[in-house]
Write a protein that binds this DNA or RNA. Sequence first.
DNA 1: TATAGAATTGACGTAAACGTAAAAGGCGCA
DNA 2: TGCGCCTTTTACGTTTACGTCAATTCTATA
Lengths: 168, 168
Amino acid sequence: MVQDRDATRRGKPVTMKLISAGETAANTNNVSVEAGEDLARIGEMAKKYGVTLRTLRFYEDKGLLNPQRDGSTRLYTRRDKARLKLILLGRKVGFSLRDVKQMMDLYDPTGSNTKQLRLALDKSEKQLARLQKQRALIDDAINELSGSMSAVRQMLAERTAPQASVAS
Amino acid sequence: MVQDRDATRRGKPVTMKLISAGETAANTNNVSVEAGEDLARIGEMAKKYGVTLRTLRFYEDKGLLNPQRDGSTRLYTRRDKARLKLILLGRKVGFSLRDVKQMMDLYDPTGSNTKQLRLALDKSEKQLARLQKQRALIDDAINELSGSMSAVRQMLAERTAPQASVAS
DNA sequence: TATAGAATTGACGTAAACGTAAAAGGCGCA
DNA sequence: TGCGCCTTTTACGTTTACGTCAATTCTATA
C-alpha cells in the first residue's frame, strides 16, 4: 500500500547513487556490493520492521548493528536485516539488549558456533524460567485482583440495597 | 526469633516515652492515644511488613502514609498499618503508587465511600485487562522461546553427531 | 531554484520505585 | 561516658530502551 510510494527509489536508484556519488575510488570502502544488493536506508528499515529511526541508531550505538555508510548515510544490508530480526525476536522473548549482543557477538560465519549456541541455550533456559515465574506472579495478581473486585462489588451492592443483604 | 531483641522496647516503653517526653502540653499534638495503642516505629514496621525504611519514608513522601511524630521520630498507628497493607496489595496486583494514592485519597470514614469503591472497581477492571494482556504476551514469549530452544538444540545435535542426522 | 522530505549527530528527558551514601542527633546499656 | 544501634533529612544514583527536541546538511522533485 504505502510502500508503492518509495518503490521508485528502491533497489537500482540506491545503487546508482552509490556509484555516481562514488568516493573517487571505485569500490574500496564498501566491503561488498553484495551482488544481489538489497541495501536499505534507515527510513525503509524502520518501516519494514516497525521500529523508529531512533531505535535503529540506538541499536547501532550499542553495537548491535553495523550498517555500511554512503558518506554519512546508513545503508543496511541483508545481514543487518537478519541481525535486526534476531534483536526483535530477542526482545520479544524478554532478553535485554545486552544479552542479545552477547549472543550475537559470538557468531562466527567460519565456525560451528557451538559456543554461541550453547550460550544461547543457557540464557534461554534462564529466561524461560523467568518468564514462567512472571506468569505465576501475574496469575497470582489476577486472582487477588478478581477477589478484591468481588469484595468491592459486594460492598457497593450493600450500599445500594442494604435492607435485604444485611440480614443474610 | 529476632523479634525477641526489641521486645523489651515495644508497647509500654514507647508510650512511656511519649508521655515522659511530652511536649509540655499533655495531649494536644497527638491526635489520639488510640487507647489500645499499637504504635510502631519505622524499624518495626519495616520488619513486620517486609519493606525497607527507605520504602516507608518514600511512601510518606508521596503522601501515601502519614505517621504521627514524637519529635522527629515516626510513629505508625494501626491505621497506617492498614494503609500500608492496602499499598502492598495494590502493588502486588500491579497498580502504580499514584493509582493507589488516588484511590486511598477518596476514603472518607464518615461516608459510604461509594465514589471510592467505584473508582477502585473501575481501575481494577482496567488493571485486570492489562494483566490478562500481559499474560498473553508472556505466553507468546514462552512459546516462541521454547521453539527457538528446540531449534538450537537441533543445531547443536547436528554439530555433535552430523553423520546420522544429516540424512534423515 | 525554492522547498519539502530524509538523514545526521548531540544531548537532555522519561518512567518507577526505591538504593545508597553522608552527616548528624538521640537513646539505652554496661 | 563511651559504644553501638536506631533514626532523621538531603540528595544524587540506578535501570532500560528509547522519546524528543535542536541545529544542520543533503537530496530529490516540481
